[in-house]
Simulated scan of single mutants.
Amino acid sequence: MSGARTGEAAEVPGGPERDPGLQPERTALAWRRTVISAVIADVLIWRAWIHALTSHDGADHSAQLMGLGICAAMACLTTIVLVICAVGRIRALHAGVAALDHDAEIAPQALMLRTASAAIVALAVTTVCALGLGFS
């Protein structure tokens, strides 16, 4: 064998000397980037809706206004859901790392992952719909 004697425990990465290091901070930064992206999409959708409300070209755009209003409300709702998921995950990581054993894992809950994924997909669909309504 390559340098290991029989009966000797091999050093395993993440063993007893496990240092969680910057994992909570990296995860928190990733969640914050995601939330900032969602907020930027929200601002652009709300801007399109306000612009459509204030345009006075004499044409009746009630369907466009209603559609953009629904898109703005959905964008706001999905961003709120993402913020709740992000805060919950960041808190769980910071609380778990303090009492972390070398055998413990801080895995995200499946419901939180599904909720965050659904919110991202809903925001993407809402953004595409708002783009379609904004250019019509």
Rank of each mutant, 00 (worst) to 15 (best):
A38G: 12
A38C: 10
A38I: 02
V39R: 05
V39C: 06
V39E: 09
V39Q: 08
I40D: 15
I40W: 08
I40V: 13
I40Q: 12
I40Y: 09
A41L: 05
A41D: 05
A41C: 05
D42R: 07
D42K: 02
D42N: 11
D42Y: 03
D42W: 01
D42I: 02
D42E: 14
D42G: 06
V43C: 04
V43M: 06
L44H: 10
L44F: 08
L44D: 11
L44N: 11
L44S: 10
I45F: 00
I45T: 03
I45P: 00
W46V: 05
W46H: 09
W46F: 07
W46L: 08
W46E: 10
A48M: 13
A48W: 02
A48G: 07
W49R: 04
W49Y: 11
I50Q: 03
I50M: 02
I50H: 02
I50R: 02
H51F: 06
H51T: 14
H51Y: 05
H51L: 11
A52W: 03
A52P: 00
L53K: 06
T54C: 13
T54H: 08
T54E: 12
T54F: 10
S55K: 09
S55M: 13
S55Q: 12
H56I: 07
H56V: 07
H56P: 02
H56Q: 14
D57Y: 12
D57P: 04
D57C: 13
G58Q: 08
G58N: 07
G58C: 08
G58K: 06
A59S: 15
A59G: 13
D60W: 05
D60C: 13
D60A: 15
H61A: 15
H61W: 08
H61S: 14
S62V: 12
S62T: 15
A63F: 08
A63E: 15
A63H: 13
Q64Y: 04
Q64I: 14
Q64T: 15
Q64R: 13
Q64F: 03
L65N: 03
L65M: 11
L65D: 01
L65V: 05
L65K: 07
L65H: 07
M66V: 13
G67N: 06
L68W: 01
L68H: 02
I70H: 01
I70S: 01
I70C: 00
I70D: 03
